[in-house]
Amino acid sequence: LVRYRTISKIPQITLNFVDLKGDPFLASPTSDREIIAPKIKERTHNVTEKVTQVLSLGADVLPEYKLQAPRIHRWTILHYSPFKAVWDWLILLLVIYTAVFTPYSAAFLLKETEEGPPATECGYACQPLAVVDLIVDIMFIVDILINFRTTYVNANEEVVSHPGRIAVHYFKGWFLIDMVAAIPFDLLIFGSGSEELIGLLKTARLLRLVRVARKLDRYSEYGAAVLFLLMCTFALIAHWLACIWYAIGNMEQPHMDSRIGWLHNLGDQIGKPYNSSGLGGPSIKDKYVTALYFTFSSLTSVGFGNVSPNTNSEKIFSICVMLIGSLMYASIFGNVSAIIQRLYSGTARYHTQMLRVREFIRFHQIPNPLRQRLEEYFQHAWSYTNGIDMNAVLKGFPECLQADICLHLNRSLLQHCKPFRGATKGCLRALAMKFKTTHAPPGDTLVHAGDLLTALYFISRGSIEILRGDVVVAILGKNDIFGEPLNLYARPGKSNGDVRALTYCDLHKIHR
């Protein structure tokens, strides 16, 4: 019993810090008490220290592992850092350059016999395009090294910054494609005289377009951006097909006994025919423009016929181009109408809503002055909100995010209106959640004399007048207030005048 009563005193000691020596009952000389009392004092002292730490809000209350900052290894790049964003855009520009100039170089340097010394005699450094290609190869190699040090988000939505895990993730992902696209074939085969082989191998750079397509997928929600990307894709495919079309004609031209190829026909049409040795002929500019003209006309199913396939190889390629053109029509131009419709969806919704308003007016036989006010209010409210119901949009977000959005939407009023000066951010967040926005066209009466005042109004834009009878008592403008002081009276009061809008007004109100 003594032991039980001794232990039962522990909660009292913990909360009230009572010393055991003052209790005459606990001072009985028993061996059990002498053993338990020192333990009680020690526990009391420890609990006292913990309570003191909690009340003082000291940093040592938290466990040590929670006080440590997340460790980022040296030379690790955050995937959302500004440097990584700028670097990704730079790589994107280099990939676009590669997609345009690599097929052009591979096709127009394929057994090209233009006048001038061969590239091997001039030297590697004197070729501007080769120098640019070398810079692109170096940048792609540097990009691989950067990807080995860039964080990523795993399946659990955690940012991984450990170098080993980053390397394994990159090896399992895009490393092989990036490595093949970054191989400097110019340096590996330079001086061997195989410019045709170098041009063909350099087309491996186009593998990076797969990554670019995935990154550009984030802009699919913007109709104008999608339309622009589709047109660029169409032009890029036409450019690639033009390079292939020229390569076919250029390879067949020296081996044909009869002059029936499209390059021969082009030379005869523009007065620059090929001679018996295969030299001469149109310039590279004429060849490229004509090839691009043929691919565009074939892809769009126009086909004027002034550039036509004559050999079997050219006919087979033309059939493939027609098939590609039909697929592009289905996948690209078939979506253009939907994209344009999405661009004008706001206008369509406006006309639909206006039609419903006019049908309501016609069905209920609203008189002319009231009908005009109804239409003007709808037009003004639509121009202010673009038909978007803010309350319906915010309803799907958590309250903390709703408060931040409301604070942002009402920031101008909260910053410049005098009653809100000096208020804490928590108070402003709470008030912003209570605001209701209303609009009024010129001549609209917001409050009639004798109406119950259940709200306090803040003028965000425009001006109003307060009338008693036919006498203008006051004219209020931006950041002015009218209405009933909230919670100042037990019952809502009545208006002693009319409140009429002089201009288009936007008002925020808080109800009782």
Rank of each mutant, 00 (worst) to 15 (best):
F363Q: 10
E196R: 14
T300P: 01
G123L: 05
S105N: 15
Q341D: 09
S283Q: 01
A440T: 09
L413Y: 01
D133M: 01
V321T: 02
L370G: 02
I138H: 01
N306W: 01
Y170C: 01
C406R: 08
K418D: 15
R373L: 03
R349S: 10
V86T: 03
S337V: 05
R362C: 02
L216I: 14
M251E: 03
A106S: 04
K215A: 04
T295F: 01
A423K: 02
A130M: 05
L428G: 02
D88K: 01
T295P: 01
K436P: 02
T385K: 03
I339H: 03
G173K: 04
R218G: 05
P367R: 08
P369T: 04
I339R: 03
Y124L: 14
H162C: 11
H169R: 05
E64G: 10
T385M: 13
V226D: 10
G193W: 11
P184K: 01
L134Y: 06
F363N: 04
N386M: 10
L401C: 03
Y65W: 03
F363V: 10
L266T: 01
F435V: 07
I332S: 03
A381F: 05
A449W: 01
I138S: 03
D178V: 01
G346M: 05
R362Q: 05
L241S: 01
R218F: 01
S337I: 03
Y350F: 06
I248D: 01
K66T: 05
H73S: 07
I141E: 03
S283P: 01
S326R: 03
C122F: 01
A235Y: 01
A440C: 13
A125M: 12
Y329E: 15
T295I: 11
D444L: 07
A235D: 01
E195F: 15
Y246T: 01
L90I: 07
L343W: 05
I405K: 02
T233Q: 05
Q127V: 06
D143F: 01
R74H: 07
F435N: 03
P103E: 01
K172F: 09
A225R: 05
I388M: 08
D404Q: 03
K287W: 01
I141N: 01
F420R: 03
I339Y: 03
T233F: 13
